[in-house]
Amino acid sequence: MLKDFLKKKKRYATIPSERAKQEVPEGLMTKCPSCRTIMYTKELKKNLYVCDSCGHHHRMTAYERFDSLFDEGTFVEFDKNMIGENPLDFPTYEEKLEADRKKTDLNEAIVTGKGTINGYGAVMAVMDSRFRMGSMGSVVGEKITRAVEQSIEMGVPFILFSASGGARMQEGVLSLMQMAKTSAALEKLSRQGGLFISVMTHPTTGGVSASFASLGDYNFAEPKALIGFAGRRIIEQTIRQELPDDFQTAEFLLKHGQLDRVVSRLEMKELLTTILEIHSI
C-alpha cells in the first residue's frame, strides 16, 4: 500500500520539462541581467524597460524611444529608405547588412525624425544597437547630418540618443570621415544659435563617443551606461595601471566632469521638456 502511494505521488509531482516549456509562451517573461528578478515583459515595457527592482535599463529599440518621448501622432520620420552599400567590396558585408535589415526591420543603425515633446518641437536621432551594434557607417553619418540641417531649417533643437560600438570597420576611412562630417554639421548648428542635446546610452564607444556624442550643449547619459573610446584592457596595457571598477561608466564620467547629468529613462521626457521650455523663451 505504502509503495503504491509513493509511486502515485511521484508520478503526479513530476512535470516533464518539455511540457513546462510549452506552457510558458516565449517572450512572456524577462529576467533582469543585473538583479536576476523575473518579470512580465509587458510590465517591463510599460515601465520603459527599466527594472522595477534595481533600476537596470534594458535595451530599447529606436522606435520605442520615439514613442516614449514624442507626443502621440507627431512623429514624422526622415530618410527612412536610405540604404548603405559596400563601397570597399568588403567580403560578406552586403549579406550581413541584409540579415540585420530582416532581423530588426530597420534599414540602418539610426532612425531620425521630427515631432513634439509636450508641445515643443524637436528633431531627434536615435541609434539602435541591434543593427551592426549601432556602428557608424556612411549612412549613419549622412542621416545625422541631414537631421541637423533639418533642425537648423526648422529652428528647433536637435536631440541625439547614441548607442554604438564605434566606427564601422567594413567601411574603413569612409566611416571615420563621418566623425568630421557630423561634427561640422553640429558646429554649423551652434553658430546659428541652435541647441544640441546629447544623451549617451549603453554602450557609446569608439568614434561615436569621440565625435558627435560628446559635443552636446547638454551631455546626459542613462545610468550605468558604458561610455568610452578604447577598451579597458587596451588602456591598462598602455598606461600600465589598474583602472577603477566603475571606469567608463556614466557615473564615473559625471564624477570627473565629462557629463552634465545621469538621467533615468523614467525622468527623461520631463527633463527634456524643461530644457526645451527654457530655450523657447
Score class of each variant (00 low, 15 high):
L2S: 14
K3W: 11
D4F: 11
K8H: 09
K9C: 03
R11A: 03
A13C: 01
I15F: 13
R19H: 12
Q22I: 13
Q22F: 07
E23Y: 13
E26R: 12
L28T: 13
S34K: 13
M39P: 02
T41E: 04
K42F: 06
L48H: 00
L48E: 10
V50E: 03
D52S: 12
H56Y: 15
H58I: 07
M60P: 02
Y63A: 03
Y63P: 00
E64N: 05
S68D: 11
L69V: 10
F75Y: 04
E77C: 03
F78Q: 00
G84R: 12
L88I: 13
D89E: 15
Y93M: 14
E94K: 15
E95C: 05
L97N: 11
A99R: 11
N107Y: 13
G113P: 04
T116K: 12
I117G: 07
G119Q: 09
G119A: 00
G119K: 10
V123I: 09
M124T: 06
A125C: 07
A125E: 01
R132Y: 12
R132W: 11
S135N: 13
V139T: 14
V140D: 13
G141D: 00
K143A: 01
I144C: 06
R146L: 10
Q150C: 10
S151G: 01
I152T: 05
G155Q: 07
V156G: 04
P157R: 07
I159A: 02
L160I: 12
S162I: 06
G166R: 09
A167M: 14
E171K: 09
V173K: 14
V173D: 12
M179F: 01
A180H: 08
T182K: 05
A185N: 04
L186N: 06
K188W: 07
R191P: 00
R191W: 08
R191N: 07
F196M: 06
V199C: 08
V199T: 10
V199K: 02
T201V: 04
P203F: 03
T205I: 11
G207R: 01
G207P: 08
F212A: 06
G216E: 00
D217H: 15
N219I: 13
N219V: 11
E222V: 14
K224Y: 04
L226H: 10
R232L: 07
E236V: 03
R240P: 00
Q241G: 01
D245N: 02
D246A: 01
F247N: 05
F252N: 05
F252I: 04
L253S: 06
K255A: 11
H256R: 10
H256T: 08
S264T: 03
L266Q: 10
L266W: 02
L266F: 08
E270V: 00
T274F: 10
H279W: 11
I281L: 15
